[in-house]
Structure formats: structure tokens, C-alpha cells
């Protein structure tokens, strides 16, 4: 691997767009194939380029018909945590370890400042604006943890209007029933609200904040991998 290629890989990874490297494993010759251009030593024809691009879109690393090896780099999935509360302090580093980019939204600066959220990105703002900044997509999980309707509800509404692959809301069955009633008033249908996991997390009798974080993390991964091709 040429040092230039390594630099290009790191640069492309930092942009958080999907791309691929293609390697002739016989000679070691290599190219980086991005959405709009390529960089490197290989002469890639139109048919090969099409195969590389479709593998990139499908996140499918592997060996091509001509023997070249394609390594696809997809941007990490994201987890948006609403509420810099105790559970968030366990969930944020856990999600980071599992490969997620973690974003914590909470307008209460003291919560954000006092919480040890690892290297999660903190957005000190109301969830309405915070969720606009995040713009959840199909590789985003949204977890609300505040128990406070004026924080949780706008975040859940924004999540329901997005393609987020996972939506979870902390709260008992009773709290969740009240929440669903409020969301119904906001115009969401039963089908919309069926996307919300509430009470949040797999049922593993979790008790402590760290245990609850494990149960949430497990449910998010279950959903993430279920949707993988």
C-alpha cells in the first residue's frame, strides 16, 4: 500500500461517505474509488467500476470476477441519545465501542457538562433544533432517556418523521401509554408509533443504569443486523 493511498483512505473515512479500495492482490496495485472519482494505480474499466460501485452501495466487500479485492468502507451508524442522564453515561461509551458515532442532545448544560459522555458529540440545545442538526437517516438510532415529555416528545416526533432504523423511549408501560396518546394527538398513526420500542431495550431484567444501557444496546444491534442484507 502506497502511503498516498493510506492518506486518501483516512481522508475519505473522515468525510463519512461510503467508498471502496480495490486491490490487485497479485501485484499489490491499488486504487481508492469514491462516489465521483478514483485515485491510484489500477486501470478500471466501466464494467469493473459499475461492479465496485454496486458493491459499495450494498456494503459488500469481497473478491471481484477478475480477482481484485474490493474493501468497502461505509460510514458508521449513528446513535442519537436525548438526555445526558445517568443511563446515557453508560450507553454512550458502549455504543462508541460497538462502532457507532454517538450524539447526545440535552438543553440542560449542567447535565451535559457533569456527565462523563466519553467522546460523544454533545448538542446543548432543545431536541427540536438538535434533531434538525442531526438529520437522522436509515443508519441512525434514536433513544430518548429524559422521561420529560417536553424533551422526549419532540425528539420522538422528529425520529418518526425520519427513516431512523431504531427508535426507543425510556419509560414504564404506563408512561409509554401516555406518550402514545400525546403522539396520537400530534397526528401520528398506530403504524408510525409501532416503530417506537417502549419500554426501551430487551427484557433482561435490567436494574442499574449500566444494565439498562446493555439492554438498549442489544436491542439496537438486533435491529441493525436484522436489516442488513
Amino acid at each position: 500500500m502506497k502511503q498516498d493511498v493510506l492518506r486518501q483512505i483516512e481522508e475519505a473515512r473522515s468525510r463519512k461517505h461510503a467508498f471502496a479500495t480495490v486491490t490487485d492482490t497479485g501485484t499489490g496495485a491499488q486504487s481508492v474509488v469514491r462516489a465521483h472519482d478514483t485515485f491510484g494505480e489500477l486501470n478500471i474499466d466501466a464494467t469493473q467500476l459499475a461492479e465496485i460501485r454496486s458493491r459499495t452501495a450494498a456494503d459488500q466487500s469481497g473478491v471481484m470476477d477478475n480477482g481484485w479485492f474490493v474493501r468497502v468502507y461505509s460510514p458508521p451508524a449513528r446513535m442519537v441519545i436525548v438526555g445526558a442522564v445517568h443511563i446515557a453515561q453508560a450507553l454512550a461509551p458502549m455504543a462508541k465501542l460497538a462502532g457507532f458515532d454517538v450524539i447526545v442532545i440535552d438543553p440542560r448544560e449542567a447535565f451535559v457538562r457533569s456527565g462523563s459522555l466519553g467522546d460523544a458529540k454533545a448538542i446543548v440545545d432543545w431536541p427540536d433544533d438538535g434533531m434538525k442538526e442531526v438529520a437522522p437517516d436509515s443508519s441512525t438510532a434514536v433513544v430518548t432517556l429524559t422521561h420529560d415529555p417536553k424533551l422526549d416528545d419532540p425528539a420522538l416526533a422528529a425520529a418518526l418523521r425520519s427513516k431512523a432504523f431504531y427508535i426507543g423511549a425510556l419509560g414504564s408501560k404506563k408512561t409509554h401509554a401516555k406518550r402514545l396518546a400525546r403522539l396520537t394527538e400530534m397526528g401520528f398513526t398506530d403504524a408510525d408509533m409501532a416503530r417506537i420500542h417502549g419500554p426501551v431495550g430487551l427484557d433482561i431484567n435490567a436494574l442499574t443504569p449500566a444494565e439498562i444501557a446493555v439492554s438498549i444496546m442489544a436491542q439496537v444491534i438486533e435491529k441493525l443486523r436484522a436489516e442488513a442484507p
Partner: peptide, 8 residues
């Protein structure tokens, strides 16, 4: 496994 040295 493909093993490649980083070269200048």
C-alpha cells in the same frame, strides 16, 4: 489474508 507493507 492479504498482507501489504506501507511503502513511500
Amino acid at each position: 489474508v492479504f498482507v501489504e507493507p506501507v511503502t513511500p
